[in-house]
């Protein structure tokens, strides 16, 4: 990958990596740092990375950085999840998008990740498996569980409303 191609990758993928990370960790500053770190690593390896594989390389690097971040902030995140869980019932939902966003935050970390990679980036199960260091069967199972949870959550809220 040439420096010019690297800069094209910045234009093409910076927003998408940032959305993926921000949706998972919900902290803009740390999401910025993770994205910056992922691109710095890509730059260091830009001569070795093929431009066709750059997107997957970026998401893989950012995902592992994010996992490290989540492990460091596990206790804080758990506390936040409890608060969000309580807030779900009290929130006056105005649209399906918000309901779905709240439901997504309630998912386990790995299920949220595979769903976001699937929905945001359209990755195949195999590509998701490569990014997350899982196998395809695990990816399929996690997606199944996540879809079922989200469907039930949406259905329950709709029933309450």
């Amino acid at each position: 990958m040439t420096p010019k191609e690297y800069n094209q990758c910045v234009d093409l993928y910076a927003d998408r990596v940032y959305r993926f990370i921000l949706k998972n960790i919900k902290d803009p500053n740390d999401a910025n740092d993770i994205v910056q770190n992922a691109f710095e690593i890509l730059w260091k390896k830009h001569k070795e990375v093929n431009v066709e594989k750059a997107r997957q390389y970026l998401f893989t690097t950012a995902y592992h950085n994010m996992i490290d971040w989540i492990r460091k902030h596990k206790r804080i995140e758990n506390h936040a999840e409890i608060e969000e869980s309580a807030a779900v019932v009290e929130t006056e939902y105005t649209g399906l998008k918000e309901i779905l966003a709240k439901a997504l935050e309630l998912l386990p970390e790995v299920q949220r990740t595979v769903v976001l990679l699937r929905d945001y980036e359209g990755y195949s199960y195999k590509e998701i498996a490569n990014i997350t260091s899982l196998n395809e069967s695990q990816v399929k199972v996690y997606i199944y569980r996540a879809r079922t949870f989200l469907k039930n959550h949406i259905g329950n809220i709709a029933y309450v409303l």
Partner: peptide, 13 residues
């Protein structure tokens, strides 16, 4: 409806 749609307004600054 469980399929997530990315928010195009979220951009890396």
């Amino acid at each position: 409806q469980t399929i997530q749609a990315p928010d195009p307004h979220i951009r890396y600054a």
